[in-house]
Design a protein around this nucleic acid. Structure first.
Length: 553
RNA sequence: GCUUCCGUAGUUCAAUGGAUAGAACAGAGCUCUUCUAAGGCUUUGAUGUAGGUUCGAUUCCUACCGGAAGCACCA
């Protein structure tokens, strides 16, 4: 719709002034019309005429042109152009919603693009905690949204199954653990984490432990048999645990290649970087130094010759470009604490010719912070994700018990998706498991409500507008969905979609309380078709966010 | 110390440089003999400070104050 209006204005301006200018279309407060534009301000600057003057001319133009889409065009304030859209546009839009169903709102703005969305990416040997939640939820929604705008999306779980932490694990298992007991344990991952915590406690006292751990990782990189065996054990046990959680969250991936996979693809990169003078050896370690010390140096190899994750990331991206094509766009959904790492990484990739500045993105999310202080795996004060899911489910039982799981997950996911991801969240059970107000359950409830209305009605929806029908906010909101989806995709911000769904549901609930379908008046069938359209759009939106629309609640 | 991100109602969050800064929660008051009241309707209440750019600044720039994160062998 926005595009249509933009074209109309463009035509008018070209005819009146023979100019091409960049301007915007906005959704104003409802009394200022359905759409508004700042075109008069922009033109006023270019032409040196007052904005009101320009605005008036454009209004006159539309007044005479007998527009097919505008009921009314007005000048307001210092030169805003307010557009009132004809009522039949909205019912025509209902037609396309009812006809297209699940396809309504899908767009082609990203058609032909290949996009890798890397998200979740847990570190094996560390617990799956609320910390991993944000990346998993936001990344999944982002992937869905990009997919719905025509991109070929590759969902990539870049599992952290390599690195010094495995040296630590191996030392801990050998010193304080028992392989057979771990294998038999009901919660092997918790046992592993306990060992990981023990390691850090002991390492505080005994500094040689860290050296020992680094040694073991070096051995692992050199394919030492014992090291590899213990490493495999950790990886297998953790993977099982992760699969369980992903299943519960309803998240899946197209590929989940661990960091270890890139072990044999790193040497070439180091050689190339050294040869081109991009990397230098300093104090025995290999590092990339940046122009004018723009960023602090990026370490590729430790002085003992073992690799660091920056190098593995370089190898990963090089491999991705080879596998998926040079034009593939790579998006990492990773916490904001790694912002510097990604800046260094992107810069280095540019120097090495792996990527350019248009095809690498870091979507940084703020961290969870805790009232009780920082959460740290190393110290063992963590909140396990499973705990959170269970608590959510328990709280959601105040609704229909049959859907407690879906409602609980919906609450957790939406809590993350409704806000701009850059901000940090203070972990607060009441906030995260919020079941009322602006929440996932509210949307699920609205969806169940619409389902129920449609199910219980004896009539079937008919999209024929009754006489004297006043266009409602639901109809006006419904028409916005495709634009919101595109905006979400362009800005890489799922919260735009979330907030829209809240507005939409609010408009519907309001509509519903004031438009009960009773008796056999001529408006009933039309009200039902609005309800059906709402049901479709809300379901589409919730599915994109990875939240289950419910039929019953 | 340096760098990055964030400061908006009592609280949690919105606002592609636009109009009277929107919601939700909490508080006050209404609202179910009618398809889901876990709803809906009223109502109280906010841009950290000081400058600058602009017709117009929550948004951009500068300084300061406050919070978080990062800064060479973790990821």
């Amino acid at each position: 719709m926005k595009e249509i209006i933009k074209t109309e204005i463009d035509k008018a301006v070209k005819e009146l002034y023979r100019k091409e200018v960049v301007f915007s279309i906005e959704y104003p407060e409802s009394k200022f019309g359905d759409y508004s534009s700042n075109i008069a301000f922009v033109l006023s600057k270019v032409l040196g005429v007052t904005s009101t003057e320009v605005a008036k001319k454009i209004v006159d133009f539309f007044g005479q042109s007998n527009s097919k889409i505008f009921k009314k065009v007005e000048v307001a304030g210092p030169g805003f152009l307010n557009f009132f859209v004809k009522d039949e546009i909205f019912s025509k839009n209902l037609d396309s919603i009812l006809k297209l169903g699940k396809k309504y709102g899908q767009s082609k703005i990203n058609k032909g693009k290949k996009i890798i969305v890397e998200y979740s990416s847990p570190n094996i040997a560390k617990p799956f905690t609320v910390g991993h939640l944000r990346s998993t939820i936001i990344g999944d929604a982002l992937a869905n949204i990009l997919n719905a705008t025509g991109a070929k999306v590759i969902r990539d779980n870049h599992i952290g199954d390599w690195g010094t932490q495995f040296g630590k694990m191996i030392v801990a298992i050998k010193k304080w653990g028992n392989v057979n007991e771990i294998k038999k344990s009901k919660e092997p991952v918790k046992d592993l984490v306990a060992l990981y915590v023990k390691f850090h406690e002991e390492a505080e006292k005994d500094k040689t432990l860290d050296d020992e751990a680094r040694n073991w990782f070096t051995k692992l990189e050199k394919k030492d048999k014992e090291a590899t065996k213990l490493w495999k054990l950790c990886v297998e046990l953790s993977s099982k645990e992760f699969q369980k959680i992903y299943k519960r969250l309803g998240v899946s991936f197209d590929t989940a290649v661990g960091e270890s996979f890139f072990e044999d693809k790193m040497k070439v990169i180091v050689d190339e970087a050294l040869e081109k003078g991009i990397a230098k050896v300093s104090e025995g370690a290999t590092l990339v130094f940046f122009e004018n010390d723009k960023y602090s140096p990026l370490m590729l190899l430790k002085s003992d010759g073992s690799s660091l994750y920056a190098l593995r990331d370089l190898a990963t991206d090089k491999w991705r470009k080879k596998k998926y094509g040079k034009d593939v766009v790579i998006i990492n959904e990773v916490g904001a604490e790694q912002s510097l790492h990604f800046k260094q990484l992107f810069e280095t990739e540019k120097l090495l010719g792996i990527s350019n500045s248009n095809d690498r993105f870091h979507i940084a999310h703020g961290l969870y912070s805790f009232k009780e202080g920082k959460m740290s795996t190393r110290k063992g004060n963590v909140i396990w994700l499973e705990e959170v899911l269970e608590e959510a489910k328990k709280r959601a039982e105040v609704f229909n018990k049959d859907v407690a799981e879906e409602v609980g997950i919906g609450a957790i996911k939406f809590n993350d998706l409704k806000r701009d991801s850059t901000k940090e969240i203070v972990f607060d059970w009441d906030e995260i498991l919020n079941l009322g107000g602006d929440s996932g359950p509210y949307l699920q409830y609205s969806s169940a409500r619409a389902f129920s209305i449609l199910k219980k009605s004896s009539k079937s929806p008919k999209n024929i507008v009754p006489k004297d029908w006043q266009v409602t906010d639901v109809e006006k909101q419904l028409i916005r969905f495709p634009e919101i989806l595109e905006r979400s995709a362009i800005e890489l911000k799922p919260h735009q979609l979330s907030l829209y769904l809240l507005d939409l549901a609010g408009a519907f609930n309001n509509f519903y309380t004031h438009n009960k379908i009773i008796g056999s008046g001529e408006g009933e069938a039309y009200k039902l078709s609005i309800t059906e359209a709402f049901r479709i759009v809300l379901s589409n939106g919730l599915n994109l966010l990875g939240i289950k629309p419910l039929k019953k609640m």
